[in-house]
Design a protein around this nucleic acid. Structure first.
Ligand code: SF4
Length: 372
DNA sequence: ATTGCTTAAGGG
């Protein structure tokens, strides 16, 4: 089972005999995924709500429990993705609806996303091959991520360019996880992050789109810098992810660790090794942030933005967004000036913000609506 | 499991 070599290695290498340095990245496949995927969690228990209205106590308790639980708890999240925060920047409430009702996309949108994803994948494969590794535990999943980091750092330092670099770290009390599209050293020797954004229509993005993308790449820099400066500690990582550093790693993971030349027995070893590699490899902080907008169909470059990192501004935004996740404030929809976003929103029909005209209508007093 | 857990980003 461990050996079902799905090695999709198409050696794009111009030969040579280097069995060590041919660039490969590992990806995972979950062996337990035979089971059908999750029923919806937020469904109320039938017995409590179906026939009987004379059970106010349990109902109330249930509601109160939901009220006091932060979104992090309600959604059973130990960490957030960088893109959770950047989509939150587009419309916070839309992001929340997306968490509550996942997989709620029009086929047209799904197509655009799929096209974008395959363009990204094709670019990734320009730089390295992907080897599928069977795994069963989340420790294995993270171990693969760590092994990839351990091979990518030297590659960046020697070849000058890597794609799909994993980042993670605590930001304002919440753990964030993401993947940097591309890192490369420029001619001037500066470390530059590039984020590719593909577009269905050959038009430059609106300001709102640019702001969201700017925020996304800023978060990557924020986290990456913290990593190379030693501010993302093994203890913090383990604390937030609840990984068990001593849980035995799967055989295929161990095999790949060995092949990579990494002497690790446990996940804990691997984490220490990653921490070391990040902090002693002379990795600089990211010097510049670039966003490239490309037309999907023709690959025409529509525009390239070089954005300046504004630490205070980014931190302020993060604090604001995290305050929602930790339950310190209610989610908000878009401001009236951005009501145009609601037209393209999948949740426009059910949105309580839109109904309430800029307030969550469920929190409105049941009194006179505005005269029409 | 008297209750579990995540590949991130994908574009507007
Ligand atoms: S309808 Fe508008 S306010 Fe409501 S979730 Fe969608 S974009 Fe946000």
């Amino acid at each position: 089972m461990a050996e079902t070599g799905e090695e999709e290695m198409m050696s794009t290498e111009a030969s040579g005999f280097s069995d060590m340095s041919d660039s490969e990245l590992l990806e995972i496949v979950d062996l337990e995924d035979a089971k059908e995927s999750s029923a919806s969690l937020s469904k109320p228990g039938p017995s409590e709500f179906s026939g009987t209205d004379d059970k106010p106590i349990s109902l109330q308790n249930c509601k109160r429990r939901l009220d006091i639980m932060s979104p992090m708890e309600r959604f059973h999240l130990k960490y957030l993705y960088v893109t959770d925060l950047s989509t939150q920047n587009w419309c916070e409430l839309q992001m929340v609806y997306g968490k509550e009702l996942p997989g709620f996309l029009t086929p047209e949108k799904a197509d655009v996303l799929d096209t974008g994803a395959s363009i990204h994948l094709a670019r990734e494969l320009e730089l390295h091959d992907l080897v599928t590794v069977p795994i069963t535990t989340k420790e294995d999943t993270w171990a693969i991520k760590f092994l990839n980091i351990l091979t990518m750092i030297p590659t960046l330092q020697s070849e000058g360019c890597i794609r799909e670099f994993p980042v993670f770290g605590e930001v304002e009390g919440v753990f964030l996880v993401g993947v940097i599209d591309e890192l490369q050293y420029t001619a001037k020797g500066e470390l530059e992050l590039t984020e590719l954004k593909t577009r269905k229509r050959p038009l430059l993005p609106l300001d709102a789109q640019k702001k969201k993308d700017y925020f996304q790449v800023s978060l990557y820099k924020y986290i990456f810098d913290a990593m190379v400066q030693g501010n993302v500690t093994p203890a913090s990582l383990i604390h937030h992810t609840k990984l068990c550093p001593d849980k035995p790693l799967g055989p295929s993971v161990l095999r790949h660790a060995e092949q990579g030349g990494f002497a690790v027995k446990s996940l804990g070893d691997l984490i220490e090794l990653v921490f070391l590699s990040l902090t002693v490899s002379d990795l600089p902080v990211i010097d510049s942030l670039k966003i490239e907008y490309v037309h999907q169909e023709t690959a025409t470059v529509l525009g390239t933005e070089i954005v300046a990192f504004e630490e205070k501004e980014v931190r302020g935004k993060v604090q604001h967004y995290i305050a929602y996740w930790t339950g310190h404030r209610e989610p908000q929809g878009v401001d009236i000036e951005e009501a145009w976003k609601c037209r393209g929103c999948n949740y426009t029909d059910i949105c309580e913000w839109k109904k309430g005209g800029g307030v969550l209508s469920s929190t409105l007093e049941p009194r006179a609506k505005k005269a029409k």
